[in-house]
Design a protein around this nucleic acid. Sequence first.
DNA 1: TCAACGCCTTAACATTTGTTAAGGGCGCAA
DNA 2: TTGCGCCCTTAACAAATGTTAAGGCGTTGA
Lengths: 243, 243
Amino acid sequence: MDDHRLFHLFRRLDIRDTLSADEKQALAEAAGNTVQYSAGSDMSSEGDSPDRSQLLIGGMAARYNRVESGDRQITAFHIAGDFVDLHGFLLARLDHGVSAVTDVTVVEFPHVNLTAVTERFPHLTRLLWLSTLLDGAIHRQWLVAMGRLSALSHMAHLFCEHYLRADTVALAAGMSFPFNITQEQLADALGLSTVHVNRTIQELRRLGLISWDGRTVTIHDWERLQQVGQFDPTFLDLTRSPR
Amino acid sequence: MDDHRLFHLFRRLDIRDTLSADEKQALAEAAGNTVQYSAGSDMSSEGDSPDRSQLLIGGMAARYNRVESGDRQITAFHIAGDFVDLHGFLLARLDHGVSAVTDVTVVEFPHVNLTAVTERFPHLTRLLWLSTLLDGAIHRQWLVAMGRLSALSHMAHLFCEHYLRADTVALAAGMSFPFNITQEQLADALGLSTVHVNRTIQELRRLGLISWDGRTVTIHDWERLQQVGQFDPTFLDLTRSPR
DNA sequence: TCAACGCCTTAACATTTGTTAAGGGCGCAA
DNA sequence: TTGCGCCCTTAACAAATGTTAAGGCGTTGA
């Protein structure tokens, strides 16, 4: 079966290893309903014990936690080809909410189907596992950037990461990629105030590194952006090798 | 085979699900050499492509990244029962170093053995996967604490997390747990300067929440420590359920 | 067409945290 | 036993980032 809904997922996995036709079919058979969420709505809430995981196939989503002050911390952005909550397959409860940043389309994977996949397809299981390991690697880079880089470097790092991730799933066009979020959402991801995010974006623009109209980011100087962000793509594990 | 080296690992997994005797034996058979590292030495380096993973069975280790300024960011602390680099099983290259914080003992698991386990034991595979998902959940909490909590709350959160993790593997004694690290290492984990870490510890002491002699942390007021740290143990997934 | 609203931008000022520097205590090694 | 070194502690000052507030611009809906 050829499920066009899985295009971005296959592409993301194919870049890291080879998926057999059987494996692709198994994934397609594990897929369930297509569901839409409109921008701003919650795709899952903290404390949920979901019985399915959601593969994003269009739009952008964010995982977030709230703290007592009412502030929000975004811990991950997701684009087409990403599972937003594959970890919910094995974790008993979600420790965060997931919110649709733009209008979003997902394909649901019932956990019973995922369990069945893991019972019959060890190699495919390792690739799904890998998927969650990449999330973890990105978390670690965010920690490093948040803990030890300046606001300017941190933001540059995030733009580098997103460009490569978008490019991986054919969502980049030249040196541009869709980044249709508000400065407030970006602040929530960087752990900064909106005012300081604004200052920092101005600075990246002034340096001629990027432009961003609120919808699309264009990178004008990839080399210098990487330098400013101290960006090393190793953590994205973009090389093909047997897993 | 009954491998006492795996005591803490079994305990950590048993708390979340049930391991069969076959599964325990499979893990024991996958285990290789025992290796020791002395405090301060590197257990693996950034960029390594290891052919085995290391299960910590004694002492404390830290994953860390260095930035250009020479500063270090610790992204995880590990205690007995934790794999320090199980993600290295599927990720082509390590994007961080691992350093022995104290004298450390590990059991090596050659990746070929782990692959064999995943080919024959789907449920055990899911438990190993779960192991790495817990790392990810902890990363997310660190992101939230680093991005949106004060230094005081962040530190309180870390102490809450470590108490529960130590307790899970029978390393806590009453309300005390081993925490044999320097303030500089703690600063590297919290993303703070050593001076500010010192100020913050003084404050936690002054509030009567903890004491710490550099080796052992004792929690004097668990309720208030959790409140100050806005700590909710959900993310540690401490409930037993089939995975 | 116009009004309302959301978002971006900027300014002035506040606060937290970082930096530099210096002294002290404790343990380990000669 | 003594000296050295590592680590903790504190102080004074500096810098990065947060807060509050206000104005503008563009999009959307009545």
